[in-house]
Design a protein around this nucleic acid. Structure first.
Lengths: 337, 337
DNA sequence: ATGAAAGCGCTAACAC
DNA sequence: GTGTTAGCGCTTTCAT
């Protein structure tokens, strides 16, 4: 832009300071001068220069969002929640696709250090908690979606993996299953071990003996789920149900079943997690756990903005939201022993 | 950050200008001083302040991307291409979800005016070409994905809707269909009328009479496709195939077929566009046109960055990429008359 | 209620 | 090859 605050000031016959006050609603301006200034702004088509503003005010009104994979509808929905609140509060969102790479996560975190962004929301971080703590301790604003964090400066929102996992297993047990495979993601991921924990707890509650050979790793993706279940099939193990730690892996199980001629749900029941849109369309429809993704993004963003503005956690820091098991065809067959 | 360029300069025993030169690889620095400076930077943990840099250099190294809906895998894939190039070229990407609202598109475009971003890529813009021209004429950098634009300062990339539409219809005709429904999106959308144009051309080529009553609008979404095809069913019109201008609407057709007990593809053949991931999973699998989404995003971003840096279109401005019809089960039944 | 003036931290033009 | 200096355009004391 060529026109700057001093030009507006000249036209309006006031000082740049006054123009600034008008723009930033600094109350202490008479209605008359405010009008003059507004007219001048209008007339010149003045737009405040963001960089100058940022430099002077030491904030950018921009939040970074580090997401493992933007083209995964699970994350996209969370981003949608974040973005929507951002828009309403006049914040901008810089999207950072980490491609599931820790290195990229770190790279993007550096935007904090050079003040490109005022804060960052990390969705299911790969970074160790310790590393996040260090940044927070230095005063950088961080928020976490999808994981509980033990640091009083880091707001976080997550869902109770253990709880819904127990519900999944209970549902399967009630349908008559006692030999239930658990397909987990990468073992380091919080979502993996918490879901595993729920699985184990539920087995215990129902006095079903734990068979470690029924646990397999599928890396949270379709191919991984496909390979994992094939390993189990090939070992000749007996089981009548699969609880996959996400829908992608469940999709892999479908594929393997087609190849092996195994009927779902009569011969094998399947339950996934995420309520991926595909789960409603695939045949048979896939039972899955639905998480309030949009809400998680929205709530955390709201909290981030609030704490950045007040510099205080006036109340809640940790948000735990409930997920819900949606029973569909893939697990709707009762077996009798 | 508390440490600034002058602090580094002091420690290294040089001037701030030299430090700046080192940071920005301004060659004309002796290896010795460069080393000293690097050490000082390291030692102090110095990070250049982005706002100051932006203000001084009049650029933000940030590109805005205005997308109709981020939680649509079609767009998400394009963004992925954009984002990946941005990362490689050290650009940041501000994501702007227009929620299919022209008003929000305009809002986000304003980021250009206050120099928050150096340029903006609009994916299938709602804004009239004229309005885009005006911005470009004022020197703002704009790029378009998914539409041809007639302005020598606006790079654009798009796919040949007319061409692949003809292929779709030809495929259907070869399978014996002569009464083919065309489900289009909102009529104003370029993708709608170009696909319609291809449909009409193909009919002409095959000397099939055009029946206007076989054209219905489905607004590019599942619900719209569902309603549209129901209107046709209810009118008692005869047709044996549906060409839906996108997969979402095709999904709606599936739903209606289930309700009406119509078998796909024996009683009704269906072809969509976008190669939505669901098309591979739904039963029967949906024939669809695959667009090189990722590539479109990547190529355009590359072009944007190049032109922003050289201030010139050294060569190509318009990119036309090919799409490909993927024939699946939903249209794999030959009928004989 | 308003104005004057001092920077925010950096880069680039000009010296040397 | 390196230093000096003058801003980039804005906000914010401190006066008045």
């Amino acid at each position: 832009m060529d026109v700057k605050i001093i030009d507006v000031a000249a036209i309006a016959g006031v000082s740049p300071a006054t123009v600034s006050r008008v723009i930033n609603q600094h109350s202490k301006v008479s209605t008359k001068t405010k009008d003059k200034v507004m007219r001048a702004i209008e007339q010149l088509g003045y737009h405040p220069n963001a960089a100058a503003k940022n430099l002077r005010s030491q904030r950018t009104m921009t939040i970074g969002v580090i997401v493992p994979d933007i083209n995964n509808s699970y994350y996209a929905e969370i981003i949608k929640g974040i973005e929507n609140i951002a828009y309403a509060r006049h914040y901008k969102v810089i999207i950072c696709d980490a491609h599931n790479l820790k290195e990229r996560e770190v790279d993007y975190l550096n935007l904090l250090l050079d003040r490109t962004i005022d804060g960052v929301i990390i969705i299911t971080p790969m970074l160790a908690d310790e590393e996040l703590f260090q940044l927070a301790d230095k005063g950088y604003r961080i928020g976490i979606v999808g994981k509980y964090i033990e640091h009083d400066q880091i707001p976080c929102i997550y869902t109770d993996n253990v709880k819904f996992s127990q519900e999944v297993v209970q549902h399967l047990v009630e349908a008559g299953h006692r030999n239930i495979v658990f397909l987990n993601g990468y073992p380091e991921a919080i979502d993996s071990y918490e879901r595993l924990e729920g699985y184990l707890k539920a087995l215990r509650n129902h006095q079903i003996p734990f068979r470690p050979e029924l646990i397999e790793n599928g890396n949270f993706n379709e191919e991984g789920g496909y390979e994992a279940i094939k390993r189990l099939f090939n070992k000749g193990l007996s089981f009548s149900a699969v609880y996959a730690a996400n829908d992608e892996m469940a999709l892999g199980v479908y594929k393997a079943c087609t190849e092996y001629g195994i009927r779902i749900p009569e011969q094998l029941a399947i339950v996934g997690v995420d309520n991926n849109r595909i789960s409603k369309y695939i045949h048979p429809t896939l039972s899955s756990v639905n998480q309030p993704k949009y809400t998680m993004g929205a709530i955390l963003m709201e909290k981030m903005i609030d704490t950045m503005n007040t510099n205080e956690f006036q109340d809640k820091r940790v948000f735990k939201v409930d997920s819900e098991l949606l029973v569909r065809a893939s697990s709707s067959f009762k077996i009798t022993t």
